[in-house]
Amino acid sequence: MGKITLSQVRKSFGEVDVISGIDLDIEDGEFVVFVGPSGCGKSTLLRLIAGLEDTTSGSMQIDGQEATHLPPAKRGLAMVFQSYALYPHMTVRKNIAFPLKMAGMTADEQAKKVAHAANILNLTDYLDRRPGQLSGGQRQRVAIGRAIVREPAAFLFDEPLSNLDAALRVTMRQEISELHQSLKTTMIYVTHDQVEAMTMADKIVVLNAGRIEQVGSPLELYHSPRNLFVAGFIGSPKMNLISGAEAAKYNCATLGVRPEHIGVGAGDGHWQGVVGLSEHLGSDSFFKVSVDGIGTINVRANGELNVRAGDRIHLSPDLEKLHRFDAEGLALK
């Protein structure tokens, strides 16, 4: 069981509030991703949940039990660190068995659990190696193995994929998702990469400057961002944000159009502009278009489109999928 409730959790270092009064419910079995730019407090929030930092005020319950002042070891949580934090002087076997040893488990039980975890993670052949002899992906698996054997109430991941190369990152991302499907244990996952957040999460928590900007499922955040920050942060390439006269036509301070919601045509479009940069990936095409009276607009089109830099093209935004924001940056309905 792993239901975690935060109420008015605040953390300050000296004068500075790193986390300012966060309320959050994490349901049992949920895959929750904390996402936000660097310095937004997402890692600190995770460390507060882990018990590696003290909360300045507020309280926290794990499975209905007061946990605000419990030491990390007593919270029943397991953590996978960004640097993996494997014990370099121990073999993989001993690394995975370490939490069991600390819990005073017998050698037989330890061996059984380690074998089971190694089997799940394809580490059986590497059990007698040291972390230094493993590849990045294997180290990552050992770190996960060390977390699994404890059968924790929840897993905490602190940017676990950021040290891997791009191809491996995709594979590991899928492995972690599959692990979640088979274990059905609560997972809290911190990342600055919105693609990871979108692909893995049941629930995304967007953080900015120590505050929660929005909580919701990936598609909720995509379709109805609550404010400009979330609109700009979720989605790739970023949503085009247009202010000024053009926005005023739609009765808003800022108008948001996702690049994929703009049609490209040769004649009779809504807007006209000159293509600055064009990128052709085969499956998609990306253009930076300098639109008359508006400025630069990013456009994404499916498949190949025979448009080159310097061409003059017409753009038509999908009027159904426009986002409108008021002067405070909040979304208008």
């Binding site: 070891a73 949580l77 953590m79 660190f81 960004q82 934090a85 494997l86 370099p88 939490p99 060390r146």
Partner: peptide, 10 residues
């Protein structure tokens, strides 16, 4: 982080 990992590991 390695010492923190040990702390998390109980």
């Amino acid at each position: 982080e390695i010492l923190e990992a040990a702390r998390m590991d109980g």
